[in-house]
Amino acid sequence: MTRLEVLKTYKIYIGGQFPRTESGRYYTLTGKDSTPLANVCLSSRKDFRNAVVAARAAFAGWSSRPGFNRGQILYRIAEMLEGRKEQFVAELILQGAAPKAALEEVMTATDRLVYYAGWCDKYQALFSSVNPVASSHFNFSVPEATGVVAIIAPESNSLLGLVTALAPVIAGGNTCVALASTSMPLCAVTFAEVVHASDVPAGVVNILTGTSKELHSHFASHMDVNALICYGTDKTEITRMKELASLNVKRIFVHTKEDQGPYHILQAQEIKTTWHPIEQIGPGKAGY
């Protein structure tokens, strides 16, 4: 008798838990020859709302962790991802990728996490400054995490796009709610499991599956979301999101390229400038 394969239930990831969507809705993902691959949660705006609550709760703790510690955790995600390489490759192939490209994507995603792990305690030095003001004050500017960031991951790939969007956000101390690719959601859910096993505090990363069509306006309008990063290409959706972002002066960034670099961290950072008097230093005395 052949052994019956145990199928995986693909759920969403909110606040360190894997619930099904509160709406009970799903969509069926099919493979190449239209064979059903999985029933995927069709997340609702309430799922998004719950995820924002979790992300907000996690923000103070995550943003105040030393960059070094965040770096170790991001590196840990990479380690976990590397360890489950085969599963991701298999899922990517199921979703239609060629085996070589699938492997390439997983390796690039892993390396990208390592890249941002290294940035966690370095971008601050890059984007900080000591400002030579003309009065007797010490003045410096440092980047600080913006807050809760909503992410609409690229539709065109499954794992690398999500990692590209998410890694710089959490490297910078933000917490996030990410919407996975609608057509290729499997790796996103599995990636949530990787995150879950990597000492990432609950709520720092939240991953939903569903459609941008349904959720984009809520991502953009939510008053407790500080920034929105999207890789969408739908012009109408982008315009709508930019409009709604104005409700709370949300920072919104629309990307077309899936590249990496420290300026991707900077976009979800605020620059804070601090002043303090310096005794005995002033015109005619010493100075910075």
């Binding site: 400002n131 009065s135 002043w275």
Partner: peptide
């Protein structure tokens, strides 16, 4: 975006200014 510690309302061209939220 700007925190004045033991001073207030100081401005300088070298000092970045702007807000959160």
């Amino acid at each position: 975006g700007v925190i004045w510690a033991n001073t207030y309302n100081k401005f300088d061209p070298a000092s970045p200014f702007g807000g959160y939220k």
